[in-house]
């Protein structure tokens, strides 16, 4: 049920790029792209994201599936927005008038969503989760938070198995989900049991951490090297964002 990030978007390629640079690039690119309003600048940003997807050699199959899922939701906006936003009428369908403003807004949102998704898939998703966490720490995210993030990630698959085991046990006893109180009570109790076991395990983990000398400080042993090629990549991303900004604000 839980895909490994690396499987979700192909192997982590271009390993010579410092993970810190990848994360920072994703933040800067996404933050900037979210602000763009003109279709030209958003389209340019989408073009750059496509370039990133090619550069990082993302597997086309999984990427297309992700894009398909997101664009399915966006199709709803295309049905609603043109008819709910007032403006210059482009198309008359009986009593419904599709406005130019509505279509433009739907187009903007669609291009933006695809650009942001592609950038996330290219820059962040393929990173091994632990090194992404350590990179976040080096970028100034508090150690406590990174620890929370990494521990949650570490135990996620285990908790999922635990919950699967509880659900299979219920299914063996003939439990079939329906819309009734019995179903809701069963789910609530399964959830309660999962929480009880999670906290039990957390206590064991806490003791194991204490045995290893945990004093509340998060140490990061991974070393990052800001090599020349990483800087080159950072410069390329900065140039692309700047180019989009010129399209947005200039001319």
């Amino acid at each position: 049920m839980l895909p490994e990030p690396a499987v979700a978007a192909g192997k982590a390629t271009r390993g010579w790029i410092d993970p810190r640079v990848r994360l920072a690039a994703a933040l800067v690119y996404s933050g900037a792209t979210a602000v763009w309003q003109k279709p030209e600048s958003i389209a340019a940003a989408l073009g750059f994201a496509l370039g990133l997807a090619v550069f990082f050699r993302l597997a086309p199959g999984p990427v297309l599936r992700r894009l398909f899922a997101v664009n399915g939701l966006l199709a709803l906006l295309w049905l609603i927005l043109p008819f709910s936003l007032p403006g210059e009428t482009l198309l008359q369908l009986g009593p419904l008038a599709a406005s130019r403003e509505g279509l433009l807004l739907a187009l903007r949102i669609t291009l933006k969503s695809n650009a942001l998704l592609l950038a996330l898939l290219a820059l962040v998703a393929p990173l091994p989760f632990p090194s992404a966490g350590h990179a976040l720490h080096r970028l100034g995210v508090p150690g406590k938070f990174v620890q929370l993030l990494l521990l949650t990630w570490r135990y996620l698959a285990l908790l999922e198995q635990e919950f699967g085991r509880l659900r299979r046990a219920a299914a063996l006893r003939g439990f079939r989900p329906r819309t009734d109180l019995h179903t809701y009570r069963t789910f609530a109790w399964l959830l309660g049991m999962l929480l009880v076991r999670a906290v039990d395990r957390a206590e064991r983990v806490r003791r194991a951490m204490l045995c290893r000398g945990f004093q509340g400080v998060f140490f990061s042993l991974q070393e990052f090297r800001l090599n020349g090629r990483s800087l080159g990549f950072a410069a390329a991303v900065a140039a692309a964002v700047a180019a989009c900004a010129v399209l947005e604000f200039g001319g």
């Binding site: 049920m1 508090p142 406590k144 938070f145 620890q147 929370l148 521990l151 949650t152 570490r154 135990y155 996620l156 908790l159 999922e160 919950f163 989900p177 329906r178 819309t179 179903t183 809701y184 789910f187 959830l191 999962l194 929480l195 999670a198 906290v199 395990r201 957390a202 206590e203 983990v205 806490r206 951490m209 945990f214 004093q215 509340g216």
Partner: peptide, 29 residues
């Protein structure tokens, strides 16, 4: 984070994971 004692990180992480898993389940309505 300020209110989260270092002692409680493991518990909080585990509960966060449990809620994440539970929220993936489809409940019939």
């Amino acid at each position: 984070l300020k209110k989260l004692a270092p002692d409680q990180i493991a518990r909080t992480a585990m509960l966060a994971g449990a809620f994440f898993v539970a929220s993936l389940v489809h409940v019939p309505l």
